[in-house]
Nucleic acid binder design. Structure first.
Length: 280
DNA sequence: CAAAGCTCCTGACCGC
DNA sequence: TGCGGTCAGGAGCTTT
């Protein structure tokens, strides 16, 4: 489901669980994409110390040095349900409640529900000391919002790749967090065609692209992410960055910059959107 | 080896 | 109203 901005927004909306203890975990099935971990490791006396994101993985730190890692896949959602809260009958939570796979019950009566229609998500629990060796974080690339991610860094990496730049940007082992939406949007903003082979990009183009990626991601975070079908933060609020898309999902419509008709193509089975006039 | 292809899964939507 | 085909924010495994 979510790309970096959506995961970041979800983490922000989960800050309220800090200090809570998990008294019980209800598993409605034994696996998602992989077998679920043994939740006894985070139940009982320990409390939540912090919630943050690394790549597209949500990390919930506990006071006993254990960390719960949650990947949302395509359709994973976390829903924070307050004690005694009234549910809206039309809510996603009610409509798709048969996909509530894991429910964390806190000591104050609040609950955190993991819902995932397609079950491409996963959970893992690991000790703080081996976090970077965990299955989900062992082989990940650079954080695009970090200082280390620059045009120069991107140029050096691009030179070693003969993938189309769109697929290059979506490769988690190179750069994390940039999925199908933000890859198309960043390439439009930097005036680069998605089909360009990575190693043909000039240093200047890489600099424009690095700036565009940071800018698009930061704007999306500021807008609470993009809500298409399945995304909302843990409080059920949807983002509104989808209204700012310049190319994603807009094939057949007119380019805001030049008025030409926007195009859609498939790259490795995923849709790419671009303006054939504005992007070179 | 890198890159492409296939796959997991459910639901929405479109055309007939 | 139903059936079949296509498509969807990801990414690990297999094939070429």
């Amino acid at each position: 489901m979510p790309e970096l901005p959506e995961v970041e927004t979800i983490c922000q909306s989960l800050q309220g669980i800090i200090g809570k203890k998990i008294v019980n975990v209800i598993k409605n099935r034994n696996d998602l994409r992989f077998i679920l971990p043994n939740f006894k490791k985070i139940e009982g006396d320990c409390h939540v110390k912090a919630v943050s994101r690394q790549a597209k993985v949500i990390r919930i730190f506990f006071s006993n040095e254990q960390i719960l890692l949650i990947g949302l896949g395509m359709t994973g959602r976390l829903i924070l349900q307050k004690k005694n809260s009234e549910m809206n009958e039309n809510s996603h939570e009610v409509k798709y409640s048969k996909h509530n796979h894991v429910i964390f019950e806190f000591d104050d009566g609040d609950r955190l529900i993991y819902n995932d229609i397609r079950r491409f998500g996963f959970m893992e629990i690991c000790h703080r000391n081996v976090l970077n060796e965990s299955k989900s974080l062992a082989k990940i690339g650079i954080e695009p919002l970090s200082q280390e991610f620059t045009g120069a860094w991107l140029f050096a990496k691009c030179q070693k790749s003969s993938k189309p730049i769109k697929n290059f940007l979506m490769t988690n082992e190179i750069i994390v967090g940039v999925g199908n939406i933000y890859a198309s949007e960043s390439l439009f903003e930097s005036h680069i065609l998605p089909t360009r082979i990575a190693k043909t990009l000039s240093q200047k183009e890489c600099e424009r692209l690095a700036v565009a990626i940071k800018n698009v991601l930061q704007c999306a975070i500021a807008s609470g992410g993009s809500s298409l079908k399945d995304y909302a933060n843990a409080d059920g609020q949807t983002g509104y960055f989808q209204h700012s898309f310049k190319v994603y999902g807009r094939d057949g419509e007119k380019c805001n910059s030049c008025g030409d008709v926007l195009q859609k193509i498939k790259q490795l089975g995923r849709s790419s959107f671009f303006c054939k006039f504005c992007q070179k």
